[in-house]
């Protein structure tokens, strides 16, 4: 398998590490999702985690956020072992994080405005006027200031994700985990979002972890990329080094080639035999 994560690009490791994932093993039933994953996510950078469908990229974000517990291995954020924390300490740590969910996960009983205001109201004592200003600034950034009074049910999938992004960065967290931020966005919103993630990262010095399938967009803003496959880190490097990587699997994934060592089909018996199988033989 690929070299140890500690062999990452020298220019990269000189940065202070915010998230350190070490020897992560995780399984669901008999299905091994991770078999010893090592990652290092530096402060103030955008790190992308990519890989074919079903490789557990979202699961990795949930493990970093402490929502899932690994079978073995450690996830440390700023030196603290996420899974060794008490429930109360874990919730305190999460106030320093923001997460953008694939579905948006907006609170359906609150308006767009109240969704974005929610973290501010529960974690700060800011006066109402300031909460309003911050919420409007965040909504302006995602282009939905005019939609502040709509309910989540009235939003399209892409709009809901943009509101969720505004909510995720409402408290200007140190670490933002983006789960497929570009899915379902029209070309204009996609371009704005890509720029927004980059700008927020640069202006506020946030650390970002992006899980995405959208290679072009993700590579255009990522400082460093990890590609995960078969439960392990298949490759890692800067977008430039990955682009010229000669490993057949990396090449196939980065360039979106249909033929290559990474199978398109989920493991299954031979198609011909499967079709002709009699009733008793069918799996």
């Amino acid at each position: 398998m690929f070299d140890n994560y500690r062999d990452v690009d020298e220019r990269y490791v000189t940065d202070t590490t915010l998230v350190d994932v070490e020897g992560l093993h995780f399984s669901r039933g008999e299905n091994d999702i991770f078999r010893g994953v090592d990652l290092r996510i530096p402060k103030g950078k955008i790190t992308a985690v990519m890989g074919p469908s079903g490789t557990g990229k979202t699961t990795l974000l949930k493990l970093i956020g402490g929502q899932l517990v690994p079978d073995s291995g450690r996830v440390c954020i700023d030196g603290e072992d996420v899974h060794g924390l008490s429930r109360r300490a874990l919730f305190r740590m999460r106030r320093r994080m923001g997460m953008l969910f694939q579905s948006g996960a907006l609170f359906s009983d609150l308006s767009v405005f109240e969704n974005v205001a929610f973290p501010l109201r529960v974690h700060t004592d800011l006066p109402e006027a300031m909460v309003r200003d911050i919420v409007l600034m965040k909504l302006q950034a995602v282009g939905l200031r005019g939609a502040r009074n709509l309910s989540p049910a009235e939003l399209s999938g892409g709009m809901a994700r943009r509101v969720a992004l505004a909510r995720a960065v409402a408290l200007d967290p140190e670490l933002v985990l983006y789960d497929e931020p570009f899915v379902g966005q029209d070309p204009i919103s996609m371009g704005v979002l890509v720029q927004l993630i980059k700008t927020v990262n640069q202006a506020l010095g946030l650390t970002a972890v992006i899980v995405s399938h959208d290679i072009k967009e993700t590579l255009s803003i990522a400082d460093y990329v990890y590609i995960i496959a078969d439960g392990q880190v298949m490759a890692h490097g800067t977008p430039q080094t990955l682009d010229v990587n000669r490993d057949a699997r990396v090449k196939q994934f980065v360039h979106g080639e249909p033929d290559g060592p990474v199978p398109f089909h989920y493991p299954a018996p031979d198609f011909y035999r499967d079709i002709l199988a009699t009733k008793g033989e069918r799996p």
């Binding site: 919730f91 999460r94 609170f107």
Partner: peptide
């Protein structure tokens, strides 16, 4: 709809 999970990630139990 992951509302409980997103609440957890906002730091609310």
């Amino acid at each position: 709809t992951e509302q409980l999970t997103s609440m957890e990630m906002i730091g609310i139990d």
